[in-house]
Design a protein around this nucleic acid. Structure first.
Lengths: 342, 342
DNA sequence: TATTTTCGTGCAAACGATTGCATTAACGAT
DNA sequence: ATCGTTAATGCAATCGTTTGCACGAAAATA
């Protein structure tokens, strides 16, 4: 049977309430009693029952994680391990632990969130993706529950707190970078169009083209829904154009891997015949051949900052509504873009 | 304020206990009442408070995850995302959710486990790594708490339930495969020596050499503690030997990536001058250049099966102690080993 | 019709903490 | 010696469920 607070109380010759106050380190308890109680806790190997505690003080010391549905391949992207590492680091520092539900469909994920919020299983939620018209964000907002989004939420983003990379800027920068290297025909390969990241990055890409006086060619913009495998189709489509591009901006390292692998099969050499630049700077970027030039977006930092905001919000130290944090990024130049094109 | 069971009871004109029984779908409640109550729940948007529930029935419907400490790079290995995907799929199917603590040091991880077990936060635990002399496994065993290990636990493995690949066999097979291709000088690059996987795989490797009548050359066996970067040192050491190997067994795809990248820098071509084979068959294996020949170990399945065992154990349907499940593996041949060496 | 079963429900005691308020003892001030 | 303070602790209600047992009504049996 479990050791309860009463056992400790009995052992230390005090009331349960006193033990509780010792746990909370209340100044109202004398030093002497505290020591006696602590000793008793030690001896009996007492650990407070978290559920009793949560029930009584209406707090859980847990943060909920909302991930894309387990069915999708998205989850395989090391991006997630890394955000979670950031989240869990900050969470741990502040004594929170992590809680996750999953579901195979979006509907199930949604149900999971609802019951974790309404069932008071967590004190706050980090949402790890953002797509157009998302029920989850809507729900969290309506129930006035503390939450923060990693990435830019679509709906009403002015009222929700989120942590993001300036993807628009990053998209613009890499495109300009390619132009500086001498490329005039620059394509864009992105993930699912209803992800905010994709839209932002493609937006930056277009702006850059305009600013540099290059034409925007819609057939240069392709989206490949399935991460790596999708890359293959995208590349084939691009290369079969009358004027195939000489450089390509890929919206994710994983996808870039797929793109390069396909180019390799087609015996198109990177970077000589095709420059490739991508985003996220996952550790595999360093070890691909050729090593990828990629935008470091500090994924760990995104998770860490998000959790930071969430904790502020839960403690009601937060700005009333809708704080946004932009984590800085920078381009890491490796070999996939080669040098200047003559 | 939260909607409680009492509110529902009032609304439906029954006692709270009846509502509770409706939730549990007890056969003792008439169909008519059930409907009335369900309607009331619907109307009020009732969700049971999980903590009250856990407190009352001493069950949490949650599974704890023990991961290597967040400090290590280990966590970046996509291996983890994939096991977790397996775990969460099975967990979700059976109405369990996942709970994780982390810590920066091993000590903190241990403390996390203790308080999650003693605090009754979870009903069972999946341990995602196994090293020599592990306090966590020891503790779980001593407290007779349901748990299962992914990978082989060292201590007293006969009494603990675990799910694993036959790493010994796999190590033997790939080594023989390389020998069949004509290689005589086969090296082994592994991760940390106190991980069970490493020891098993190296064991299989040695056995194969013996069985094939090849000498065991200790300087051919190197271990590289830090995943990818470590690969560099390992390769350099191997290539500076008087008789450098012509093939290498690498104990993990990630590390193999590092190895190939270093070989690439040293202008040693894979597979022409060096054959590389590795384990895990992560999706990146397919997209590296050259694509990696790797042992598919069904990581998702490991997680899934582990959770399955755990659930059996928690329901006390399990064999008393120490069940072991071996998930089958097979070699996926791609291009990193080339064809037969003359 | 009287008596026993069965069925459907309610009562109230757990589960293991927290916390507002009451209580007691000690102590200095009058 | 009495009173008002203050400091340290205890009492008991509360958090929102579950569940063993009791109870009354209806159905089945005698």
């Amino acid at each position: 049977m479990q050791v309860t607070i009463k056992d400790v109380a009995r052992e230390a010759n005090v009331a349960p309430s006193t033990v509780s106050r010792v746990i909370a380190n209340s100044p109202r308890i004398s030093q002497k009693t505290k020591e006696r109680v602590r000793q008793a806790m030690e001896e009996l190997g007492y650990y407070p029952n978290v559920h009793a505690r949560s029930l009584a003080n209406r707090t859980t010391q847990a943060i909920g994680l909302v991930m894309p549905s387990a069915a999708t391949k998205t989850l395989q992207n090391p991006f997630f391990s890394e955000v979670i590492r950031g989240i869990s680091t900050k969470a741990h520092q502040n004594g929170y632990s992590l809680y996750m539900t999953t579901g195979v469909s979006e509907e199930e994920v949604y149900e999971g969130v609802v019951s974790m919020v309404q069932g008071r299983r967590v004190d706050g939620v980090v949402v790890l993706y953002s797509r157009t018209d998302d029920k989850v964000v809507q729900f969290l907002q309506d129930s006035k529950f503390p939450f923060v989004v990693v990435g830019k939420p679509f709906s009403d983003s002015s009222h929700v707190t989120y942590v993001d990379t300036d993807n628009y800027l990053a998209g613009r920068e890499v495109t300009k970078y390619l132009h500086q290297l001498g490329h005039e025909c620059i394509a864009f390969v992105g993930g699912s169009q209803d992800l905010a990241v994709t839209q932002e990055r493609v937006g930056g890409y277009k702006t850059a083209l305009m600013e540099e006086g290059l034409p925007i060619n819609e057939s240069y913009i392709v989206s490949a829904p399935f991460m790596t495998t999708g890359g293959a189709d995208a590349v084939k489509r691009l290369m079969s154009l009358e004027h195939p591009p000489t450089a390509v901006v890929v919206s994710d390292d994983m996808m870039a891997l797929g793109v390069m692998s396909t180019l390799n099969e087609m015996e198109i050499s990177v970077p000589d015949q095709m420059a490739v630049v991508s985003f996220n700077n996952l550790f595999i970027a360093e070890f691909s051949s050729p090593p990828l030039t990629s935008v470091e977006i500090n994924i760990f930092g995104l998770g860490f900052e998000a959790t930071n905001c969430l904790i502020e919000q839960m403690n009601e130290e937060a700005t009333p509504y809708g704080k946004r944090v932009i984590v800085p990024h920078y381009l890491v130049v490796r070999q996939s873009c080669g040098g200047t094109v003559k």
